[in-house]
Nucleic acid binder design. Sequence first.
DNA 1: AGCCAATGTCTACTTACCTCA
DNA 2: GGTGAGGTAAGTAGACATTGG
Length: 279
Amino acid sequence: MGFDDHHACNTGLVLGLGLTASQESTSPTPQKAHRQMNPLLRKPNNSFEPSLTLGLCGNNFHEEDHQGNNSIDLYRQGSPHNSHSAVSNSFSSGRVVKRERDLSSEEVEVEKVSSRVISDEDEDGPNARKKLRLTKEQSALLEESFKQHSTLNPKQKQALARQLSLRPRQVEVWFQNRRARTKLKQTEVDCEFLKKCCETLTDENRRLQKEVQELKALKLSQQQPLFMHMPAATLTMCPSCERIGGVGSEGANPNKSPFSMAHPKPHFYNPFTNSSAAC
DNA sequence: AGCCAATGTCTACTTACCTCA
DNA sequence: GGTGAGGTAAGTAGACATTGG
């Protein structure tokens, strides 16, 4: 169908059942493979599939080779609040097993060091969970990095964490939350866009229904003496082709619509004006 | 080659803390 | 000063891929 979304809703967005191909460069990381399996992130290389989403573009994932040496830093926190972390909670339950399993060996070591510091400083009880606030500099650098690639491979994570004096886990969490926020915003945009499309289609539907009614009425009137049902004032004659058109069939929507018929002005045959002497 | 456990990463959802009006 | 809303760091569960035995 010839529905032109770009003009209909004027949002600058593209809606369509399109076939999208992968924009992602090759990455040897497992995450890439995972993304290919994940329905929300999947961008298969050699396949096309219908899509309605307005996902992030420019999301190329480069296998950047940061210096990435494996030395372990004691990641100091950037703000006074930072001496506490969620790790203190994790270690207070049996989930510490999973928690440690989630961490690389390096991270485990860092976590353990951190937890030691935490336990020294934590005077609010074993379950206290103070909120970390990232500094402006940290946030800015994370944002910058996110613009380049919305997911990180382990090396990138390590390098970024070192650069920011954060734990790799914190960098990972920040990226996870950032992706979630992006997706949420995009969903809101999509929702607004679809609402507008719905309104447009509803209006169009209403207009077409009205047109159908008028055409039906006209057809009915043609089966009976026309002068009894159709006042002369409702008929107009096309000066060029000398045909008669009804009022109201087009006037309801003066704007050209994507749903307009190929020949928007219907020509109605009027036996009374169709004689050779009519014009 | 096939199986399985361990591990790592992801999303989605939730919780808890902090800030600000 | 108290409070509710919003933002966000972090926890959790579940799914899936990879890897090594």
